[in-house]
């Protein structure tokens, strides 16, 4: 297994390098260092000297990939790409273009993201599985049919509608919770109710249908028929046999998501004023802060790769037939 993990980590390096290269090319394809300088310095009374000075101070005066003025290896190392992107592999995120430390900011902002994403994920998963099992229990009845119709309807609604609808209904009309906001610690619990609820509800349609389909597939297998024939109660068959055997595909979808919970949700964080990493990324894109954008894209890729590795490990853990070599 150790060999397998080392090999996977080695595969990750070119992927991360490619992601970096792509981010770099895309960013500088639409935005030149001069543009970035002008945006950061403001819209009024900006002189050419001020733009040049900003570029020098922030290291954007270097050529993109090849520096003919450099000597030897400096022709490659004294370039924007190497100076700005390769340090990320040592998890050195550097400073944002406004001078603030990115690593510190990520460390601070990942907690609000996690505080919303984790309960949404755990409670949501529990709710989706429970509803899916409920529908499977009543399969081929009116309850199942009505349930599926409702799920399809819920799937068809935009996530933004849930956000605005939830804010209007629960916070504005019924006045149960604050419309938006965030506070750290227990005093901020009431702020979490609405985003967590909306996060759960917006995923209920597709996730529940997916789990229902998994359970129905399992329910059609011979071992389930055998269990019924042996006289086991329907509840025991459902929770012990069907749920247990459907765990592997559930894990596929679930474990890969876990590391990325730190990254937060772009829409939820923006609408609820949650100071997480989702809103950090959006703000950075709007402010053309390449330092933050590249750090967040790198982090996202890294966590995704980590999620895939965890998924593989969890396969081996839940299914004795799987061996990682």
């Amino acid at each position: 297994m150790i060999t397998y993990l080392i090999r996977r980590l080695a595969y990750a390096l070119p992927i991360l390098l490619g992601v970096n290269l792509l981010t770099f090319a895309l960013f500088f394809g639409v935005s030149s260092p001069d543009d970035m300088a002008r945006l950061h310095l403001g819209g009024k009374r900006i002189t050419a000297e001020a733009v040049e000075r900003w570029k020098v101070q922030h290291g954007y005066d270097l050529p993109h990939f090849y520096n003919p003025a450099g000597e030897g290896v400096a022709k490659v190392t004294q370039t924007l790409f190497v100076q700005k992107s390769l340090k990320l592999f040592a998890l050195d995120f550097g400073a944002a273009d406004d001078g603030r430390d990115i690593g510190r900011e990520i460390g601070k902002r990942m907690w609000p993201s996690l505080v919303v994403a984790l309960p949404t994920f755990v409670l949501g998963l529990g709710a989706y599985l429970a509803i899916a099992l409920f529908l499977v229990f009543f399969r081929n009845t009116a309850i199942d049919t009505v349930g599926v119709i409702l799920l399809v309807a819920l799937m068809s609604i935009s996530g933004l509608f849930y956000v605005i609808g939830g804010q209007v209904l629960l916070a504005k009309w019924w006045q149960w919770v604050p419309i938006s906001g965030y506070a750290p610690g227990l005093s901020g619990l009431h702020f979490l109710v609405l985003p967590v609820l909306i996060g759960m509800v917006s995923g209920i349609g597709d996730s529940t249908r997916f789990y229902r389909a998994l359970f129905l597939e399992e329910a059609g297998h011979d071992y389930v028929r055998t269990a019924h024939a042996k006289g086991l109660s329907p509840f025991r068959v459902l929770f012990r046999h069907i749920l247990g055997n459907a765990a592997i595909p559930i894990l596929t979808g679930v474990v890969v998501v876990i590391p990325r919970l730190f990254l937060g949700s772009l829409i939820l964080e923006s609408f609820f004023g949650i100071p997480g990493l989702g809103s950090y990324t959006i703000d950075a894109i709007q402010a053309q802060d390449f330092a933050i954008v590249r750090a967040m894209v790198f982090l996202g890729s890294l966590l995704y790769i980590l999620g895939l590795m965890l998924t593989d490990l969890s396969y081996a853990w839940v299914d004795p037939r799987v061996r990682l070599q």
Binding site: V168, I179, S270, F272, S279
Partner: peptide, 11 residues
Amino acid sequence: LEKEDIPYWGK
């Protein structure tokens, strides 16, 4: 911090 008009106006 209020990035969106709807929650801001509601509050």
